[in-house]
């Protein structure tokens, strides 16, 4: 059966006061290597009137480049709803596979804005890059400032001690490399040896880490405003410098040589420090930037593994390893001062 009627039947169970529920204009959004993402329009009858709303379906694929808990992603969005961190409204989470073959969640669509990094570097957006950068790192600072317990995430995300953040993350992603790499990675293995020999200081605070905070994962307009922070599937508790380091990863410069393709690195860090009240100790940030090169490579390697093992043969699984594996090695060399 087509996806539309199955989706409508599921939503009917969640909207008991609605009738004549119809899913229209369902289309898959390009990208989405960790989840299948669709937009659609929901129409229904209620209180004597016909109503409609634009919604997003995020469904687990058969095999993904990132193995994540969808409940954590769902709850992370919910936790920041109504805060200084703009996020779409989450509606329903389904963790069983009966309804649509795989677990999924449904959220509102924040429509009418752009997410593509490539569009940023031509008119009209190229004129607003500094303003967009200011907003990007200010919002990241708001995530860093958040109290995980106060917004309900300490009950959902596994806790970690301030002096154990680095080891938990490094061990996890090193394990992903051990499991999934199909070719030796001498540069990344050397980076891991250095990271283990030179651990960072304990985190200033254990905060919420978005996990994939980069240009391309937010919705922007041509005035430089950001309307939604997306892709929280790797969110966890940890050192806020981890997110700052990922945002500065050279692979997210899109060839511009500046942070996120938006701002000089020093300006981005200064905005984050000013807005968060936290310090970006240069040595600690250096550690987290190199760590994020390891993490990035692990993600690209996992994407190739999902394709090689036959679990997901979509072209999107090939693009990251082909386009980014060497770039990620080069990024690691740059962070280490060797390129």
């Amino acid at each position: 059966m087509a996806l539309e009627p199955r989706l409508a039947a599921y939503i009917a169970t969640r909207m008991p006061h609605a009738s004549d529920i119809v899913v229209e204009d369902l289309s898959r959004i390009s990208g989405g290597a960790s989840r299948e993402t669709y937009r659609f329009r929901l129409t229904w009858a209620q209180d004597g009137a016909r109503q409609d709303r634009k919604l997003i379906l995020r469904r687990d694929p058969p095999a993904s480049l990132i193995d994540t808990e969808r409940r954590i992603e769902f709850e992370a969005y919910r936790a920041f709803r109504g805060s200084a961190v703009p996020v779409p409204e989450m509606l329903w989470l389904e963790e069983e596979s009966e309804a649509l073959d795989h677990p999924f969640f449904i959220a509102e669509e924040i429509a009418g804005f752009q997410a593509s990094p490539q569009m940023l570097f031509g008119p009209p957006y190229v004129a607003i890059l500094p303003k967009l950068g200011e907003r990007k790192w200010t919002i990241l600072a708001e995530i860093a400032k958040a109290d995980p317990a106060a917004i309900g995430l300490a009950d959902v995300m596994p806790g970690v001690a301030a002096d154990a953040c680095w080891d938990r993350e490094l061990s996890y992603w090193e394990g992903v490399l051990d499991d999934d790499e199909s070719q030796p990675l001498p540069i990344i293995r050397a980076a891991i040896r250095w990271l283990r020999a030179n651990p960072p200081p304990p985190a200033q605070k254990v905060g919420v880490v978005h996990g994939d905070y980069r240009t391309g994962n937010f919705l922007y307009d041509d005035a430089g405003a950001i309307h939604g922070i997306l892709d929280w599937e790797m969110a966890h508790l940890g050192d806020p410098l981890e997110d700052l380091g990922w945002s500065l990863n050279p692979v997210w410069s899109f060839g511009t040589g500046i942070a996120g393709g938006l701002l000089p690195r020093a300006e981005a860090i200064a905005i984050w420090e000013r807005a968060s009240g936290l310090k970006a100790d240069p040595a600690a940030l250096h550690w987290w930037e190199l760590f994020n090169c390891v993490k990035g490579q692990a993600i690209w390697v996992s994407s190739a593994r999902a394709w090689l093992d036959g679990g997901n043969r979509e072209p999107i699984m090939v693009y990251p390893p082909w386009a980014l594996q060497n770039a990620q090695d080069r990024a690691a060399l740059k962070v280490m001062g060797r390129l």
Binding site: A190, V251, F254, G255, N326, A327, R330, L333, K334, L339
Partner: peptide, 20 residues
Amino acid sequence: DIWAELVASTERRKMAASPV
């Protein structure tokens, strides 16, 4: 010398549209 070869290897493998 190993680092020099690793740097050279990334130059050999660099794609035209590499972001780095």
